[in-house]
Amino acid sequence: MGAGHGHKLHYHGHSVVHRAPAHLKVASLLVFMLVVVATSRTWFPVFGVYLALLVAVIAASKVPPLYIVKRMVVEVPFVVFALLMPFVATGPRVDVLGLSLAEDGLLAAWGLLAKGTLGVVASLTLAATTEPRDLLAGLERLRVPHQLVQILGFMIRYLDVVTEEMRRMRVARESRGFSARSVRHWPVVARSAGALFIRSYERGERVHLAMLSRGYTGSLTPGATTPGATNATPTTAAPSSTTPGNHA
């Protein structure tokens, strides 16, 4: 990946939020989420204040609200779980639109939806206003373990690769007349997912062996862990041209 490549979650802009240091934005997100999680789910007006604060930040960032809303699909599993809680929870019941729902389940569902939605919106806002390379540099500045930053860097670097391979597998299935329209087709989709996992795992092994053959000892030069870096030059001396690793 060249330096010109961005991430699909990032929205290019030059607002004051975009220009803010990445490590400050990461720290602010962490503090915000700790406060949200620690807030009692019965303090309903406070959640309105949190939402207003997020709306103000999004407005200052000039990121279109629809851009954030479209990417909130990641929250769907939590929404489904929250909708089921009033039905499966025990305790006093209350009738809502002819349905018998548990009061504790309703309160728990509200807390999950409110805190989860605030967390998703805040995280998407950070991703939309921060380049991946700046985000990783900010984590390093916050003294996050270097190995963890490397893992995150490679995950971002190869996320698009794996996504594109998944798309090619879907196109190959559809070109052969396959379309997952019922539960009977799930085994085929599951086998495809397994094949994708094995290919990704093998690719990771090959990349790691190639790095070792070039003298990788567990640390990279500054900036090499970021997705924008074009060369992952190890801190040790580079092997000579006769080293077999140069042809990996």
Rank of each mutant, 00 (worst) to 15 (best):
P187C: 04
N231Y: 14
Y216L: 04
V183Y: 10
R181F: 00
G204M: 05
V189T: 02
P187I: 05
A210Q: 08
S219E: 13
E174D: 12
S182I: 05
R214M: 13
A193H: 05
N231W: 15
F197G: 06
R199Q: 13
W186M: 15
T221M: 12
R184A: 15
R168Q: 12
L209S: 09
R173A: 07
A172I: 05
R168H: 10
P222V: 05
R173Y: 08
V207P: 03
R181M: 11
G177H: 06
Y201V: 02
G194P: 08
S179H: 10
T221K: 15
A180P: 09
V207E: 09
A224F: 07
M211W: 09
S219T: 12
T225D: 11
R206K: 13
E165I: 06
T226F: 00
A195Q: 09
V188A: 10
G218L: 10
S179T: 02
V171I: 11
G215N: 09
G215L: 01
G215Q: 03
T226R: 10
S175L: 13
S213T: 02
W186A: 14
Y216W: 08
R191N: 00
S213M: 11
V188C: 00
M166E: 02
T230G: 15
R167Q: 06
E174F: 14
G215M: 04
W186V: 14
V171N: 09
V171R: 11
M166Q: 00
A195G: 13
H185L: 08
R184I: 13
T226E: 13
S175N: 15
F197L: 15
P222W: 04
V189G: 02
G223Y: 00
G177K: 08
F197Q: 08
R168L: 13
A224Y: 04
A232H: 00
M166F: 08
A195W: 03
Y201S: 01
G204C: 04
G218I: 01
F178C: 05
P222C: 02
F178E: 12
A232R: 06
L220R: 03
G194S: 10
S219L: 01
R167E: 03
V188L: 11
M166H: 02
L196K: 11
S182G: 15
L196P: 07
T217L: 11
A193C: 00
G204Y: 04
Y201L: 03
L220K: 05
L212Y: 07
A180E: 10
P227I: 02
G228C: 07
M169N: 08
G223C: 11
